[in-house]
Amino acid sequence: MNEKQSSQSTLTLVMILSMIIWGISWPSNKVLTSFGTPVVLGFFRYGFVLVSLILLLILLKTKMVISKKGIPFLLASGGLMAAYNYTFLGGLQNGSPGAGGILVTTLNPVMAYGLGMLVDWKRPTRNESIGLLFGVIAGLCLLKIWGSEDIFAKPGNLYFLLSALIWSVMSKFTSKSAKYGSPFAFTWWMYFVTLMCIIPFCDFTAIGELIQTTDLKFWGNVLFSSVITTTLATTTYFYATSKIGAEKASSFIFIVPFSAAVFSFAILGENLEIHTIIGGLLGIAAVYMINKK
């Protein structure tokens, strides 16, 4: 195995691990929504992210400089991340987390490929088309579409549709990050812009009350959401978009709903039904097909 193949294999393994972490983050973020609004929770999340990520950048001896040509991409990415934070947590508060998680994770790769076709005039290959089809069928199986209630019956689930669209567009911007400096430095500045977009809408009284709380459920979940999920897993995802493109990176998201179901079974004792297993395996097959040479 040459150096390039080894690097690609490592990136694949790290991406799979990141998607497993994303799966765990769904119930964790649902717990957080009981403590505050999406804006207030976003303040804590991206505050911790900026601190933890800059420590990582210092450890990696990464320069924080970004080319001036990259500033428009940086501002767009940061603004979209702020919007995603609102729609994502808003969906968890007002919609169905299970159905919403599947909607976002199924539609994300499909929207990313559709956007890529429009922007780059690039048609998906045969393997990519088969993989996308597997992914859509996986989502339908996971939703148990043949016997479930209308997933759009709850208005909050529309937030998840917006989340998928916003994430797809944002991934396209972050895929250009390597052209303007280190992808990790780009990501730090992106989170900085995100926090700056959130601060004007913050309720600082509510923030002060949460700072004084001793509830370990809040602090444990907010640290997991920020340091583990965002600083490590999400930053890895954005790094991958700069290396393999937004479309292929987004395909790994098909793994998320299955990992969420498995860990809900292992940790919370929730039922792991046959349609979940079939949908999860199809999602994994989708990732394999889309990234197959």
Rank of each mutant, 00 (worst) to 15 (best):
V193D: 04
G47T: 01
A178W: 11
Q8V: 09
G91T: 05
I284A: 14
Y113E: 10
P97T: 05
W121F: 14
A261T: 03
A76N: 01
Y86I: 08
I290R: 15
F184Y: 02
G147C: 03
F88K: 07
T12W: 04
G100A: 09
T12R: 11
V227D: 01
F134P: 12
K292V: 01
F265E: 09
G139L: 05
D150A: 10
F252H: 03
Y180W: 11
I137G: 12
V65H: 15
V14K: 02
S251W: 03
L161K: 04
P97M: 08
S177A: 14
S175H: 04
W22C: 08
K217Q: 13
P183D: 09
L17I: 09
K179N: 15
I277Y: 13
K4W: 11
F263R: 10
G269N: 04
E3H: 15
F254R: 00
L11R: 05
M1R: 15
S6W: 01
Q93P: 07
I228Q: 00
I16G: 07
S34M: 10
W189Q: 04
Y237E: 01
I16Q: 06
Y46V: 07
I102P: 01
S163W: 14
F252Y: 04
F73I: 12
T213A: 09
N108G: 10
Y237K: 02
T10K: 13
I20C: 11
Q8L: 14
L56S: 14
T241H: 06
S7Y: 03
I207C: 01
A76V: 06
F173P: 08
I267T: 09
G36I: 08
S171Y: 02
L142S: 11
V262H: 13
I71S: 13
E270Y: 02
G47R: 08
M190V: 09
L60C: 06
V222Y: 14
M1K: 15
N2Y: 05
G42K: 01
N291D: 03
M289L: 01
V227K: 06
L143Y: 05
P257W: 06
E247M: 11
S259N: 02
Y113V: 11
N85A: 15
F44E: 00
R123P: 15
K154P: 10
L165H: 04
I253Q: 08
D120W: 07
I130K: 12
G139Q: 12
S251Y: 05
F35V: 08
G101T: 00
I137Q: 12
F43V: 01
I54S: 11
W189N: 03
N271Y: 10
I290N: 14
G156W: 03
F184T: 06
F44A: 00
F201Q: 09
L118F: 03
I130R: 13
R45I: 00
F224E: 07
G100W: 09
K248I: 08
S67T: 14
L118E: 05
L162Y: 15
K30F: 13
T174G: 11
Y86V: 00
F204I: 13
F173R: 08
T214Y: 05
S148Q: 10
T214I: 02
K69N: 13
K172H: 07
V31N: 05
K248C: 04
V136S: 03
V119R: 15
I274F: 14
E247D: 12
V262F: 13
T12L: 10
E209G: 07
I267L: 11
S226M: 09
I267Y: 06
Y180I: 13
T87G: 13
V39R: 01
F204P: 11
L60W: 04
S226V: 09
S67I: 03
L11A: 02
A261L: 00
P27N: 07
V193G: 02
S175R: 02
